[in-house]
Structures are given as structure tokens and as C-alpha cells.
């Protein structure tokens, strides 16, 4: 496995794990995602940025299967996945977090993560084993002290940890992280960055949606920018973040 940071160069020689071709989503007239094409390569971290309302969450929804694209094609490991419902995509190894965190509120932390171990790509059939691996992921994300707490009693940072633990327990190949750092302080952001790096070391391919540019800079091998539903830039983080159109998209927004 190559070290983080070295992937960008070698990326193009590898097979894409995810291919999106001309993905479009219309909501009764409004085009939220407009003919977006991109590829993700095995074990890379792709940063997805763009102002609010750019269509990032909508794109994630289409990849995870909770929304059907109006147009375009999605392939995962070479196979078309457009016809698959969300649960089958999860079995293939596509896994997401929600911008609005969605733990199962009445379940304990352990139960929440166990669901991931039972029904994800690993699909462990034996409860005891699933619980054991859930505990390991809870340790991994540093949530051991709240193992038996109800999910809806967790505070912000712990809730994010839970979201990670659930996702990891599913043994994903492709992980879609939708603004997991929102609302965290600088120290907590640093922890989450470390966590994402650790995940990548385990072989996971990761899409990171984030407004924290520092995090995008330190994590991403490549960056993709959406604006008004269209892809306006893609490539090396440093270059993309200085691209005048990207600066314009962000600053133009800020000035309003």
C-alpha cells in the first residue's frame, strides 16, 4: 500500500473503483447536479468541495442509492449499479455518512455499530461475532467509554465517532463522508483527520466533502469542485484551490 500523498501520481494507472458518467439530477425543473463525470481510484482520497447548494449531498445520495439520477451512469468496480437499491450497494462496499447524522436514536452505541457489522459488506451472520467486531471498531474510533450509552444521548464529537464506527463496521471499499467535520473545534477536526488517514491505511477509498479547506488540503490526493451542480475544476489540491474560478465561486458567494 502506498503512503498517503503519493497516490496522485500513480492514480491514473490504476483501475477506477467508481466511475460516474454524465450524472444529472433534476428536481422539478431545478437542476441540482448537471452532467458530472469523474472517477475515483482505489485507495485514494478525493476531496469534494463547493459552496452550499452546489449539489454535493445530492451527488452522494445518488452514489449511495437513496436518490435515482435523472440521467447518467454509475459504475462500481466496473459494474453498472444504477439499478441497485441502497442495501445492495452497501453489500458491494459503498458506505456513507449523513450530513445530518443518522444514528439509530433509541439503540445503544454498541447496537448501532453491530448493525453495521451484521448488514454491511462483511455481513457477519453470528450475533456474538458481530458484537465483537463492533467493539473493535468502537475502540478504533475512541468511543469505548460510551459503549452502552443511547445514541441520542451522545454529544456532537461522539456522534461523529459513532458515525465512523458504524461505517467502518460495514467494511466499506468506498466511503462517502458528507461534512463530518461541521461543528467541530480545531482539536476535534485534527482527530477526525487522523481517523480518516487511519481508514485509508486500511485500504478504504474515501470521498471527503468538507468546507474546512485545511482538512481538504491535508487529506486529499485530488480535489473536485462543484458549483451550481457543475464540475468546474478537478485535480491537484494546491492547483485547484488557487484556480481563479474556484476562488470566484467561493468568494462570490461570500460577498453576498
Amino acid at each position: 500500500m502506498s503512503a498517503p500523498g503519493e497516490n496522485a501520481a500513480g492514480a491514473t494507472t490504476r483501475i477506477p473503483i467508481l466511475q460516474a458518467e454524465g450524472i444529472t439530477k433534476r428536481f422539478s425543473g431545478l437542476v441540482s447536479v448537471n452532467r458530472v463525470s469523474f472517477e475515483m481510484y482505489e485507495n485514494e482520497i478525493l476531496g469534494l468541495i463547493g459552496p452550499n447548494g452546489a449539489g454535493k449531498t445530492t451527488l452522494v445520495n445518488m452514489i449511495s442509492g437513496t436518490l435515482k439520477p435523472s440521467d447518467g451512469e454509475l459504475r462500481f468496480e466496473g459494474q453498472p449499479i444504477d439499478a441497485l437499491p441502497p442495501y445492495q450497494r452497501a453489500h458491494l462496499g459503498i458506505c456513507r455518512t449523513f450530513q445530518v447524522m443518522k444514528p439509530f436514536p433509541g439503540m445503544s452505541v454498541l447496537e448501532n455499530v453491530t448493525v453495521g457489522a451484521l448488514f454491511g459488506r462483511g455481513g457477519e451472520k453470528v450475533m456474538a461475532k458481530a458484537r465483537r467486531s463492533a467493539r473493535e471498531w468502537i475502540d478504533f474510533t475512541g468511543l469505548s467509554h460510551r459503549v452502552d450509552a443511547r445514541a441520542d444521548s451522545l454529544g456532537g464529537p461522539d456522534r461523529k465517532r459513532l458515525e465512523f464506527a458504524k461505517a467502518l463496521a460495514m467494511e466499506p471499499k468506498l466511503l462517502l463522508l458528507d461534512e463530518v467535520m461541521a461543528g467541530l473545534n480545531a482539536v476535534e477536526v485534527e482527530e477526525v483527520i487522523e481517523l480518516i488517514k487511519k481508514m485509508r491505511e486500511r485500504g478504504v477509498t474515501i470521498l471527503v466533502i468538507e468546507h474546512v479547506i485545511k482538512a481538504i488540503r491535508s487529506l486529499s490526493d485530488r480535489v473536485l469542485v462543484l458549483h451550481h451542480g457543475e464540475k468546474i475544476a478537478e485535480g491537484d489540491p494546491a492547483a485547484v484551490l488557487e484556480d481563479p474560478r474556484v476562488v470566484e465561486a467561493y468568494l462570490g458567494r461570500r460577498r453576498q
Binding site: 452497501a90 436514536p105 447496537e111 448493525v115 454491511g120
Partner: peptide, 26 residues
């Protein structure tokens, strides 16, 4: 109450959309 099946049911009760994206054939 103790099985994998039951865990799936409770997950559906708690949040059906999330249950689907976590691999449960709701």
C-alpha cells in the same frame, strides 16, 4: 429480540432510510 433479524427490524423502526443504506433489505 436477540437475533440478526430482530436487529434489522429495530433499525428499520429507528430510521428506515438509514437502515437501507446500512445494507438492510428493508
Amino acid at each position: 429480540s436477540k437475533s440478526r433479524f430482530g436487529m434489522g427490524l429495530v433499525a428499520i423502526r429507528e430510521d428506515e432510510d438509514a437502515a437501507g443504506t446500512m445494507g438492510i433489505n428493508t
